[in-house]
Design a protein around this nucleic acid. Sequence first.
DNA 1: GCCATAATTGAACACCGTTTAGAATTCTTG
DNA 2: CAAGAATTCTAAACGGTGTTCAATTATGGC
Lengths: 204, 204
Amino acid sequence: MARRKDHAPEELKSMAIKAVIEFLQEQPADKLSLRQVAKMVGYSPGTLINLFGSYAFLILAANAHTLDHISDQLESSMTISDDPKEQLRLFANAYLTFAVEHPYQWQILFEHHLDEADDIPDWQLNRISRLFSLLESRLKVLNPQSSEEERHKASRVIWAAVHGICTLVIDDKLFAQETLTGESMIQSLLTHYLGSWTLPEMQS
Amino acid sequence: MARRKDHAPEELKSMAIKAVIEFLQEQPADKLSLRQVAKMVGYSPGTLINLFGSYAFLILAANAHTLDHISDQLESSMTISDDPKEQLRLFANAYLTFAVEHPYQWQILFEHHLDEADDIPDWQLNRISRLFSLLESRLKVLNPQSSEEERHKASRVIWAAVHGICTLVIDDKLFAQETLTGESMIQSLLTHYLGSWTLPEMQS
DNA sequence: GCCATAATTGAACACCGTTTAGAATTCTTG
DNA sequence: CAAGAATTCTAAACGGTGTTCAATTATGGC
C-alpha cells in the first residue's frame, strides 16, 4: 500500500497548508491535529511528517503563509492614502481587521511556540523585518529629522501597541463598554502617540 | 483503593494549583499535563477532575492565582511614588517584570482559552476590572476634567499597549536591536501617549 | 457491628504525534 | 525486457494525552 505519487511534494505541501488554514476559519487551533489534516488531504499522518519534519513545522509553514497574506493586506491598505499618518492608521486597521476576521488563524500565528532548541528560520524573520521597514519609512516621512534609532523604537512601540489591542480585542479581554471599538482605540493610540512625533525636540 | 482524605478539598486544590505554578517556572505550558500534576500532588488524574471539573478549569484556577499575584505586585508598585505619571510607569513596569520573570506562567494566563460554551466566571472578571479602576483613578488625578468615558478608553489603550509590549518582548518577536528594552518602550509609550492627556481639548 | 455514604482510583476509551518495518510502485541498469 | 535498486507511502505500534466510570475502600452514624 504505497507509491502513489498523486501529487508532487510541493503540491502536497500547499494542500496541507491550505487544509490547516481552512480548518482554522471555523475551529480553534486546539481542535486541529495532524491526523485531522492528514484526513483532509487524503494522506497518512506519517506522510505529512516526512514532508514537513514534524507537526510543529507544518504549523510553522501555515503561519508563514498567513504572514504573507497579512503582509499583502497591509501593503495594499497603505496605497489608499498618501498622507503618512493616515497610512499608519490604515496599516493598523488592516492588521486589526485580519485578526477579527480570522481569529483562530491569528491566534495560532502568535501562540505557536517552537521548542527553543530549533529557532525560527530566516525566511520567517525576513518577512517581519520587511513589515517594520514599512512602518519606519512612514515615520521618516512624518519627521525627516528623526534618527534611525528613534524610528526603530517608535515603530516597535506602535506595532506592539497595535498588536496588544488586536490580541485583547479578539480574546475579549478588555472588559470595555460596547462603544469602545478596536478602531477607536487604534485611532486614539496613533493620535496621541504621534502627536509629539512631528516635534522631535520633545522625545523620551 | 480509595477513601484517603489526607487533605481537605480546598487544601488539595491549592496543592494542585501550587504544583501547576511550580512546574511553569521551569517548563512551558505544552509540557504540562493533568497526569503530571496528579503525579506531583500524589493523587490520581480522576481525583483532580472531580475537584476542578476538568483540566481546563484547573488551569483557570491557577490563572486566577497568577492574576492575584500580579494584582498584588502592581498595587504595591504604585505605592513607591506619589506622582501619578510615575505611578503609571511603575505599574506598567511591574507588569513587564512579572512577564519577564515568569514567562511560562504569563503565557498560559493569556493563551489558555476555554471552550466558548462555558464562559469566564465572575470572580475572574472582577479581578481584572479592579485593575482597570486603578489605572482610571490615576488618569483622573492627572486630568480631573476628563470624562469617565475618556478615562475608560485611555486606560484600555494604555493597558493593551503595555500588554502588547510584554507579549512581544517575552516571545522575542520585536526583531529589535539590543539597546531597545521593554522598559524604554514603556517609557516612550507613556510619555508620548500621556503628553496630550493633561490637555483635554486635544483628544481624538 | 453494620450499613450507607463519601472519597479515591485503576482500567478503559478515544484521541494525540511520532517511529518504523515493510508493501507497492517506479526507475535504472544489465 | 527482466531484475534489482530506489522511492513513496502507509499500517501498525508506542507512549503519551484528558476523561469516564465501575469498583473498592475507609469513614461516620445508628
